[in-house]
Amino acid sequence: MKQILVTGGCGFIGSNFVHYMLRQHPEYTIVNLDKLTYAGNPENLRDVEHLPTYRFVHGDIADRSLVEDLMKDADAVVHFAAETHVDRSIMDAGSFITTDVHGTFVLLEAARKFPVRRFVHISTDEVYGTAMSPEGVSRPSLETDALMPLSPYAASKAGADRLAFSYWATHNVPVIISRCSNNYGPYQYPEKLIPLFVTNALDNIPLPVYGDGKNTRDWIFVEDHCRAIDTLLHCDGYDGEVFNIGASQEFSVLQITDLILNILGKPASLLQYVKDRAGHVPRHAVDSSKFARIFDWNPVTNFEAMLEKTVTWYVEHESWWRRIKEQDANYRAYYQQQYREREGKS
Rank of each mutant, 00 (worst) to 15 (best):
M148Q: 12
M148I: 10
M148K: 15
P149R: 06
P149Q: 04
L150S: 10
L150M: 14
S151L: 00
S151I: 04
S151N: 01
Y153A: 10
Y153D: 08
A154I: 11
A154M: 07
A154W: 08
A155Y: 04
A155G: 06
A155D: 03
S156I: 12
S156H: 07
S156L: 08
S156R: 08
K157M: 06
A158F: 08
A158V: 00
A158S: 09
A158M: 05
G159M: 02
A160D: 03
A160G: 15
A160F: 05
A160W: 00
A160I: 02
D161P: 05
D161Q: 01
R162M: 03
L163I: 04
L163C: 04
L163S: 01
L163H: 00
A164P: 00
A164Y: 03
A164T: 00
A164C: 09
F165H: 03
F165G: 02
F165Y: 00
F165M: 10
F165S: 09
S166Q: 04
S166C: 01
Y167D: 04
Y167S: 02
W168V: 00
A169M: 12
A169C: 03
T170A: 03
H171P: 07
H171T: 03
H171V: 03
N172C: 11
N172Q: 14
V173D: 04
V173H: 05
V175T: 00
I176G: 13
I176H: 10
I176A: 09
I176L: 15
I177A: 04
I177M: 10
I177C: 04
S178C: 14
S178Y: 10
R179H: 02
R179G: 10
S181F: 00
S181R: 01
S181G: 06
S181D: 05
S181E: 06
S181L: 02
N183T: 07
N183C: 07
N183D: 07
N183M: 08
Y184S: 04
P186H: 01
Y187D: 01
Q188C: 05
Q188G: 01
Q188P: 03
Y189W: 08
Y189R: 14
Y189M: 10
P190N: 12
P190H: 03
E191S: 14
E191I: 13
K192H: 07
K192A: 09
K192R: 15
L193H: 05
I194G: 12
I194L: 12
I194Y: 02
P195L: 08
P195D: 12
L196C: 08
L196A: 12
L196D: 15
L196H: 09
L196V: 08
F197I: 14
F197L: 15
F197D: 07
V198L: 11
V198I: 15
T199L: 11
N200Y: 13
A201R: 14
A201H: 10
L202F: 02
L202D: 05
L202T: 11
L202A: 10
D203M: 14
N204F: 02
N204I: 05
N204P: 08
I205P: 13
I205F: 13
I205R: 15
I205G: 06
P206C: 12
P206A: 13
P206M: 14
L207G: 09
L207F: 09
L207W: 06
P208Y: 11
P208W: 13
V209L: 15
V209M: 15
V209E: 05
V209G: 06
Y210R: 14
G211T: 12
D212A: 14
D212S: 15
D212I: 08
D212Y: 09
